[in-house]
Write a protein that binds this DNA or RNA. Structure first.
Length: 757
DNA sequence: TGCACCGATGTTTTT
DNA sequence: CATCGGTGCA
């Protein structure tokens, strides 16, 4: 058993539902029983909630007082803590601000604007994600500048200024005393690399390191673990390659696939028995994941009951889909005497929660939405937090820009622009400029100068207060004295009222936080502590397990959770798998793993739903069933279709490519579109091509009819003309000129093209 | 300088 | 559809 393995590297490949958390819990408890000091154990989990739960489970085994000393948490929160205590080494203040994605976006957007670049070419979101992937791969500005191929790639993408933006962004963050999420990992690497004494200190401290969800670590995280474990090699990683779903933020599945290479004397255990789900669910999930090529061999099985078949249900629209889910929940609950908390509704995109919420609300079913626009991302909350952040760290540029004129106090954009320029000129923060405003003059009229002085004075008075008060007292003062709440009260609209309520909720939350912190010996309940907590917390971490509500969340958020009854909604092409993730095999495989994760959340029953058309951007769009539906072995399914028109493509489809490939994606377009149910409000759909006529393999016609010069239609790019066709078998590609949408090279396996005559 | 309106534009997924 | 940024007016 893994639990008796004490020293040396260890990898546990744990299939879905095989009790990963249990392994970690028992291993830690075991180590402690063997006399390992709890201070020398570092456990990195995927969510703070997982850490908290594990800690309390360990506490029941080894006792509260010992468990308390364990270092447990997410990579981000653990290393943020370490970075605070070592910040001066890197030239950062220990109270550095943590920028969230939105802060980064704003900063990047303003840099692009200041550099007078075309914002249609330099899209801030793209820039941000590129910078993020640089950081996650430890490509610093300096590394970027010395890698001609990176520079060349950006030049080819017609963004020659990428490097400049990157540099400016990093500089500005540094000057603002701010780190973004990626910095928390990158700077930790820098810290461990540049300062051997620091490295030695933490290597000696963390003699035992455990990493959960290892398959989702990125390069930066991987290197941190490697560095820390280098001395004692007591590293235990737990994961499941089949559940790697974070490639988009740099997770590298190779980290787990090549653990044996990194630690040649590593012991590997495999846990393949699933204790969570019914046989039908386990088998169906296996039948899906086997379509992936890149994976470790693993055979998950269970001794659990066969259970109910997986229900596949079609609805005309997303509204009806919601109604179906709501009434199913109602019925299951009645029939089987269940609680609301036994149900989860999972979706690919957060936007899908709305239709579900509406339906559940109508039936008075209590629910809770996780993720999406979380509480701490709401505007009014971010406003209050921005004041608080500015108080703690007056160099924080993004916070300052956010609140300097909110509520309106007559400080306009032109003034702010002048301040930004001056700050850059003097190589200092905007707040410092405010202090020297009289001395510098700088063409700001005296009225505005007074306003600026007042603002600066107000912040300073808060800073003084901060020296003697706790987080709650300051937050309370901020909401009152800044006029923030007053402005909302004056507004009087219903939204403003909810905003005030939210601010009150925030204050209550801060109070709770302080009470919680007081219980911990080395915590004081200061504003700094609170802000750090807020920056890295996610909805999931917030308690309230005990309230009886249906959970609504994205599949990503559901990782590691389990529910007796799971609805997976929106099983449609272009939604799940996402239209953004179908261009390469690896993207598609990640989508498939995501589906695998979703399915294996269910203990007793999984219900998959899809619609024939759904509202997207306020428009009703035709939808077709997800390919994942037909990838599941039919034996485990109960396909409920109101008018019986759901049909699977024959499993042994004619192989239209020369290369037989078991993993080949079948284009299926079940001919369900005819016989549109007479349901009201479903507008007639415009099928551009008489699909029904082309017997059972319309993909075949698709590919065969294609040649140069043919006019085609693509669901995203519109109509275009084929310029060239190249490759063969699975690699058959067409280069298509879509006019304004540009020339694209598409893999014909994935591109759903329709010929236009 | 500030506010109100308008059109454009974009949606994966998260620490 | 919802947010954002830009424009035009007071």
């Amino acid at each position: 058993m893994p639990t008796v393995h004490k020293d040396g590297p260890l990898m546990v490949i744990a299939g879905a539902g095989s009790g990963k958390t249990r392994v970690l819990t028992y291993r830690i408890a075991y180590l402690m029983q063997q006399g390992v000091d709890s201070f020398s154990i570092l456990a990195l989990t995927f969510t703070n909630k997982a850490a908290k739960e594990m800690k309390s489970r360990i506490a029941t085994i080894v006792g509260e007082s010992e468990a308390k000393n364990l270092w447990m948490g997410t990579f981000h929160s653990v290393f943020a803590r370490i970075l605070r205590s070592e910040a001066d080494r890197l030239g950062y203040p220990s109270n550095f601000t943590i920028y969230d994605t939105q802060d980064s976006d704003r900063l990047i957007a303003s840099i692009i604007k200041e550099m007078k670049l075309d914002k249609d070419v330099y899209k801030y979101k793209q820039i941000r994600s590129r910078i993020s992937s640089f950081k996650n791969s430890l490509i610093t500005v300096r590394a970027y500048m010395s890698h001609p191929e990176l520079i060349e790639a950006d030049r080819e993408a017609r963004r020659p200024q990428m490097g400049e933006i990157y540099k400016e962004y990093v500089d500005r963050c540094f000057k603002a005393g701010a780190m973004d999420f990626d910095d928390l990992l990158l700077k930790t690497n820098e810290l461990l690399n540049r300062f051997p004494d620091v490295l030695a200190k933490y290597q000696n401290r963390f003699r035992y390191i455990l990493v959960d969800e290892y398959q989702d670590t990125n390069q930066s995280q991987y290197l941190i673990v490697k560095a820390l474990a280098d001395r004692f090699q007591n590293v235990c990683v737990v994961g499941d390659d089949a559940q790697s779903i974070y490639a988009f933020r740099g997770a590298n599945i190779e980290n787990i696939l090549s653990f044996q290479n990194d630690y040649p004397n590593a012991t590997t255990y495999r846990l393949e028995q699933n204790y969570r789900s019914s046989q039908n669910i386990v088998k169906a999930a296996n039948s899906v994941i086997k379509h992936n090529q890149n994976k470790l061999d693993k055979n998950v099985w269970t001794e659990n009951a066969v259970g109910e078949k997986i229900i596949v249900h079609r609805s005309p629209t997303d509204g009806e889909e919601g109604r179906y889910v709501a009434s199913s929940i109602f019925e299951y609950k009645m029939q089987h005497q269940l609680h609301h908390r036994d149900f989860a509704v999972l979706y690919r995109t957060n936007a899908q929660s709305r239709a579900m919420e509406d339906a559940l609300r109508k039936r008075d079913i209590p629910y809770r939405v996780f993720g999406g626009l979380s509480f701490y991302q709401r505007k009014e909350i971010k406003d209050v937090l921005a004041y608080l952040r500015l108080i703690v760290n007056s160099k924080d540029e993004e916070s300052l820009k956010r609140v300097i004129n909110y509520p309106a106090r007559g400080i306009g954009q032109t003034t702010i622009d002048k301040l930004v320029v001056k700050a850059k000129e003097h190589d200092c923060s905007i707040f410092e400029i405010l202090e020297r405003i009289e001395e510098l003059g700088m063409g700001i009229n005296s009225g505005t100068r007074t306003k600026l002085a007042n603002f600066s004075m107000m912040i300073k008075s808060f800073q003084v207060l901060n020296e003697t008060s706790n987080a709650f007292e300051i937050a309370d003062a901020v909401t009152k004295k800044t006029g923030l709440v007053q402005a909302l009260k004056k507004d009087g609209t219903p939204e403003a009222v909810t905003r005030i309520e939210n601010i009150e909720e925030l204050l209550n939350g801060i109070k709770d936080f302080i009470d919680g912190q007081r219980e911990l010996a080395d915590m004081t309940g200061s504003l700094t502590e609170f802000l750090e907590d807020v920056a890295l917390i996610s909805d999931l971490d917030q308690g309230s397990e005990n309230d009886d509500r249906v959970s609504l969340m994205s599949i990503h958020m559901a990782k590691g959770l389990e529910f007796p009854y799971v609805f997976i909604v929106g099983m449609e092409e272009d939604l799940f798998p996402s239209a953004m993730s179908m261009n390469t095999r690896s993207e598609l495989e990640e989508e498939r793993r995501l589906f695998y994760v979703a399915l294996t959340r269910a203990e007793k029953q999984a219900i998959l739903t899809y619609t024939q058309s759904r509202y997207r951007w306020g428009k009703l769009i035709d939808a077709e069933p997800s390919r994942f539906l037909s990838e599941m072995d039919e034996a485990y399914l109960d396909v409920q279709t109101p008018d019986d028109s759901y049909q699977f493509q024959p499993l042994l489809n004619t192989d239209i490519f020369d290369t037989p490939d078991p993993n080949r994606v079948r284009f299926k377009k079940p001919p369900l579109k005819k016989a549109a149910p007479k349901a009201k409000s479903v507008p007639p759909r415009k099928n551009l091509k008489p699909i029904a006529n082309t017997t059972n393999t319309n993909d075949q016609t698709n590919v065969e009819g294609l040649s140069e010069g043919i006019k085609v239609k693509h669901s995203r790019f519109g109509t275009g003309i084929i310029v060239a066709i190249e490759g063969n078998g699975n690699d058959l590609k067409a280069e298509i000129d879509f006019g304004t949408a540009g020339v694209k090279k598409l893999l014909l396996r994935f591109a759903k093209l329709q010929i236009i005559k």
